[in-house]
């Protein structure tokens, strides 16, 4: 492996009483990578993050942070981590700059470098105007930024953000995402969320968790390729011969969706130009030629549901159902 693994966990398990919240979970984070942890509510994202930051101990398994074992040497390992939990851990009765000063001291930043570290964090998180206001008087978005400032203050190699955009307005969300992308340039970031577009917008790699186990872990291209639906939707002015359509190269089956609209199911990736040529040759009036790709949303839903529904429920079937519903 050419890249150095900043976080390396092996077979993490965590029980809450009898409840098995995280089940044999593995995670590897490389330098300069933005990893999205994705999963429905209660999938074990927060528990995982709490374990990675030493807030709770795993029931079994190991966590290596930058080569240091978190369980054996927590103080050393925690120096490489900046953590923003779901609810920003900010003292509402302090001003933002007072609070950051406190965090700087807690994080072992040498006295002479504290002020410059605080200034950098304030600038990066756009807190300049509110630095001397009480945190209690800041809007939710700014409070969130103070939380992020706290997480990046000591220039940790890994920044762990737990649902950083929950409860923010669209403008704030965009700004925070911008900031996260910015962070991805010189820090490695782990981001948990249940909002797909967010992962799509900022992450290099995605790890989907369901009931405490990983169901998918790869880059976005892989995710899209893996389950892009091989389906074309075509619509004509008037009803045409289905058999003609089914003779096209690669077409597995043809389905009438209604009013001269057809769904062509392909074995592999569809070839739209064939349909066009056929229509021209036959003199059919083509109204619609639409390559049906699944949105990430659907892929995500499939991944989450496929596991719980019977495994023979193939992607095609799921797509069919969805298309039928939408069509």
């Amino acid at each position: 492996m050419s890249k150095q693994a900043l976080i390396q966990t092996s077979a993490l398990n965590r029980y809450y009483g009898k409840y098995h919240a995280v089940n044999d979970f593995n995670l590897t984070l490389h330098k300069g990578e933005v990893l999205g942890l994705l999963g429905p509510n209660g999938a074990g994202k927060s528990t995982t993050m709490q374990m990675l930051t030493g807030n709770i101990f795993p029931s079994s398994g190991t966590i290596q942070i930058n080569g240091v074992d978190l369980l054996d040497n927590p103080k050393q390992a925690k120096k490489s981590i900046g953590y923003l939990p779901e609810q920003p851990p900010i003292y509402r009765d302090m001003t933002a700059s007072e609070f950051l000063k406190y965090c700087a001291a807690l994080h072992d930043i040498p006295k002479d470098k504290r002020q410059s570290a605080i200034d950098i964090a304030i600038e990066r998180c756009g807190l300049g105007d509110v630095a001397n206001k009480l945190i209690a008087n800041l809007s939710k978005g700014y409070q969130q930024r103070v939380g992020i400032a706290q997480a990046i203050l000591h220039q940790p190699q890994v920044v762990i953000l737990d649902e950083p955009t929950v409860g923010l307005d669209p403008i704030q969300i965009t700004e925070i995402r911008e900031l996260i992308r910015e962070l991805g340039k010189d820090h490695s970031v782990i981001l948990s969320t249940h909002i797909l577009p967010e992962v799509q917008a900022v992450c290099d790699r995605v790890q989907i968790i369901k009931e405490g186990s990983t169901v998918f872990s790869d880059t976005f291209e892989q995710l899209e390729q893996r389950q892009s639906a091989p389906v074309l939707l075509v619509g004509f002015e008037s009803v045409v011969d289905e058999n003609e359509l089914s003779t096209l190269a690669g077409v597995k089956s043809v389905q009438l969706l209604g009013e001269a609209r057809y769904q062509l199911n392909y074995e592999e990736s569809p070839i739209a130009s064939d349909v066009f040529q056929l229509s021209v040759a036959k003199g059919w009036k083509l109204n619609e030629l639409n390559q049906q790709t699944e949105s990430l949303e659907q892929i995500f839903m499939n991944l989450i549901h496929n596991e719980s529904v019977a495994s023979e429920n193939t992607v095609e079937e799921v797509v069919k159902e969805q298309v039928a519903k939408n069509g």
């Binding site: 050393q76 953590y83 851990p89 003292y91 965090c103 072992d108």
Partner: peptide, 14 residues
């Protein structure tokens, strides 16, 4: 209650 204990718990402190 305010979930601020996380700050101390995730800082390099015993």
């Amino acid at each position: 209650m305010n979930k601020t204990l996380t700050l101390l718990l995730s800082s390099p402190l015993s």
